[in-house]
């Protein structure tokens, strides 16, 4: 079994609102998948369904478990950081390590202590005495000391300054990730993670707009910056989005091979952000 998460026609309604609408996808082992969507797109709901925190319709299997009904077994092999401020404020760092050590069969306390030594988090400090960045470091140290098959990060760096954010992702890639692990991540700060993703999924209004590997993305999408006649010709090839920049037209194409644009202007690989904006606009037309 190489696919860790297998979703077939998964839906979730909140009253009349369809937060997740008939979604199907797979996540394979060893991938870092970015789940990207605007606010209210259904990202968090989808993650909650994967984590067994909410019930949903359709077939959803995570590591072979039904996440809602077998949450305890699932949580032995899966970790998540849902938001930065979720560690209880009254607990001491040493107490939280004691607790996770007693509860979690796959937690290595020595590894967590090793990771904490690299930070300025002291083991006798209470969470409420720590800065927001330090709380995240603590949480990440705990998570990285758990030998889990799947790590789910929902806006893990929200509210942190840029230094912490950079460090967070560097730690994650260097000290944690290997081919045995899989990471599912959502964030608004797409630019910060697009270089570390292996796969990307766009979601809007509860539907998947795009589900692709990053490699396939650069084959499928082309961005052309052109002016005058070059722009005219390019426009004839049917861009999915067009914007103006420095008096030139920036056009995004889907499924049109690169050789068509030779000599028309500057050819680039579109950024995930631009692609995302184009896809959302296209969907809203």
């Amino acid at each position: 079994m190489t696919s860790l998460v297998n979703a077939r026609s998964v839906s979730k309604n909140f009253g009349a609102v369809r937060a997740v609408d008939n979604v199907s996808f797979e996540i394979e082992k060893g991938k870092i998948l970015g789940l990207i969507g605007p606010n209210g797109a259904g990202k968090t709901t989808l993650l909650k369904a994967v984590l067994g925190l909410t019930e949903c319709e359709g077939d959803l299997s995570v590591l072979g478990f039904d996440p809602f009904r077998q949450r305890k077994q699932l949580m032995q092999n899966i970790c998540f950081i849902a938001d930065v401020a979720v560690l209880p404020r009254w607990i001491k760092v040493s107490q939280i390590l004691d607790y996770v050590e007693a509860i979690h069969p796959n937690f290595s306390r020595s590894r967590a202590e090793e990771l904490l030594l690299q930070t300025s988090v002291r083991s006798d400090a209470k969470v409420k005495e720590l800065s927001k960045g330090m709380v995240t470091q603590l949480h990440l140290s705990i998570i990285m000391a758990i030998d889990a098959k799947l790590l789910v990060l929902d806006e893990p760096t929200l509210g942190l300054d840029i230094l912490f954010r950079k460090e967070f992702y560097a730690n994650l890639l260097n000290d944690y990730f290997d081919e045995e692990r899989t990471i599912l991540i959502t964030t608004h700060q797409v630019e910060e993670i697009e270089n570390l993703l292996t796969d990307v999924m766009f979601i809007n209004d509860g539907k998947i707009l795009l589900d692709s590997s990053m490699d396939a993305l650069s084959d499928t999408y082309v961005e052309v910056m052109a002016s005058g006649e070059g722009a005219q010709k390019a426009r004839g090839l049917g861009p999915i989005a067009e914007t103006e920049m420095f008096g030139k037209s920036v056009m995004l194409f889907e499924g049109v091979s690169r050789e068509h644009f030779e000599g028309l202007g500057e050819i680039r690989i579109p950024s995930v952000t631009d692609l995302f904006v184009a896809k959302i606009k296209e969907a809203r037309k």
């Binding site: 849902a82 979690h104 949480h139």
Partner: peptide, 17 residues
């Protein structure tokens, strides 16, 4: 209290039913 301070999501991220 765990809902008020939102730590419930941390507690529920551990293998405890």
């Amino acid at each position: 209290a765990e809902r008020k301070d939102k730590s419930i999501l941390f507690w529920r991220s551990l293998p405890v039913t």
